[in-house]
Simulated assay, not measured.
Amino acid sequence: MKNNRYILLSLAFIALAVNYVKAQLPSYNTRIKLLYQQINNKLRDSTEGLYYETSDKAKNENKHSYLWPLCAYIQAANEMEVIDPSKDYMQPVEKAIDQYYTDKLPFAGYQASVTKEKPDSRFYDDNQWVAIAYLDAYNRNHKKRYLEKSEMICRYMLGGLDTVAGGGFYWNEGDKSSKNTCSNGPGILVLLQLYNITHNKAYLNTALDVYKWVNKTLQAPDSIYYDNIRLRDLKIGKAKITYNLGTMLQSNVLLYHITKDHKYLGVAEGIAKAGRKYFFKKGRLPGGYWFNAVMLRGYQELYKVDGNKDWVNFYQEDADAIWNTERDANNMLGTKPERSLIDQAAMIEIYARLQELK
């Protein structure tokens, strides 16, 4: 009897302690404001209208950030505007991204580094992430430039689509050694969003072709997605990363909305269950905040359809753990001494999406 009473008291104490810790956590809105402030304080070059890769300039490869962290930050800026439409968070990031533009033939697009600083490679996925953020913005505010830039990016990315290995987009314009889920999942999303806006059937048909190719070529038996196919020998790179699952999860939900075919919703739910089981271990998601932010996009879309809180609760648990255990004295997040732009942007996106879901 005493042992049972002790166990019950212990469980009650633990529950009280957990609730106390949760009560002490700042709101998602507060966390977003703190992170946004530190990006402007420590990671923005206001003179050039550009951003730094990390807070330690001595460790940065370039004077200013690669485009990839700005892919995260432009989406984060969009999500901040979702929860606070009175502000214009996107414009300064958009102006920075404009400095990566190149009209190099055969199609204009954005390169990996600031154009005036050095010539660099162009990656199809970098361009696609920007287009996804711009299309999300266009669906909110109908600013024409966001649609026009997204259509420009789509023309660029379609230049990276062919029938080698059966189909799919390349990853790097200048290196045709692989086709990756990270350039095909977001490519599908760009095409589906453009179809929703323009009703041009060619966008939908191409999206379906790429969707079928990814599922045939790069989906594992457990419904998680592999990373890439190497083209010289068709060997599959079997790394499993959260963002690859996220884009394909979101693609299925969008296809459900477009076609009204419940098979896509069933596939989405299967992918979501597999992803949560595979990636969420001991109360945490794997490292890589931005990869996880992209995966949240898919879970958020599914949650809006079926209202299943399982798709949200584990993200809340991980996001709170990050704030509690991976935050420095300046309220910047990360696991390295130097704090990176992509990490701060990713967590802004995650907290903003969780705020919206509340």
Rank of each mutant, 00 (worst) to 15 (best):
M90H: 02
M90C: 07
E94R: 13
K95H: 07
A96Y: 06
A96S: 15
A96G: 06
I97Q: 09
I97F: 01
I97Y: 05
I97L: 06
Q99G: 03
Q99D: 03
Q99F: 04
Q99I: 03
Y100T: 10
Y101M: 12
Y101K: 13
Y101W: 15
D103S: 15
D103H: 08
D103Q: 11
D103L: 08
L105G: 08
L105E: 11
L105K: 15
P106E: 08
A108T: 12
A108V: 04
A108G: 15
A108C: 07
G109V: 02
Y110I: 03
Y110A: 03
Y110V: 05
Q111Y: 08
Q111T: 02
V114G: 04
V114R: 01
T115F: 04
T115A: 12
T115R: 04
E117G: 05
K118E: 15
K118D: 01
P119A: 06
S121C: 01
R122V: 14
R122I: 15
R122N: 01
R122Q: 12
F123G: 02
F123C: 02
Y124V: 03
D125T: 10
D125L: 09
N127E: 05
Q128E: 15
W129C: 02
W129K: 12
W129A: 06
V130N: 13
V130T: 08
A131S: 14
A133H: 02
Y134Q: 00
Y134V: 01
Y134L: 13
L135K: 09
L135R: 02
D136C: 09
D136M: 03
D136A: 12
Y138T: 10
Y138G: 05
N139G: 02
N141C: 12
H142Y: 06
H142N: 15
K143R: 15
K143S: 13
K143E: 15
K143L: 14
K144Q: 15
K144Y: 00
K144M: 10
R145C: 02
Y146E: 06
Y146V: 07
Y146N: 07
E148Q: 13
S150R: 06
S150P: 01
E151N: 10
E151A: 00
C154G: 00
Y156G: 04
M157V: 15
M157R: 02
L158D: 11
G160P: 03
G160N: 04
G160L: 08
G160K: 07
D162E: 10
D162W: 10
T163V: 11
V164G: 00
V164A: 14
A165N: 13
G166T: 12
G167F: 05
G167N: 08
G167V: 14
G168L: 12
F169I: 06
Y170A: 14
Y170W: 11
Y170E: 03
W171G: 04
W171L: 09
N172V: 14
N172S: 03
N172K: 12
E173C: 02
E173N: 00
G174V: 09
K176C: 01
K176Y: 05
S177W: 09
S177I: 14
S177E: 12
S178A: 15
K179H: 05
K179P: 09
T181R: 01
C182S: 13
N184A: 07
G185A: 13
G185R: 04
G185C: 03
P186H: 00
P186D: 01
G187Q: 13
G187N: 09
I188H: 08
L189R: 03
L189S: 09
L189K: 00
L191Y: 09
L191T: 06
L191D: 06
Y195N: 10
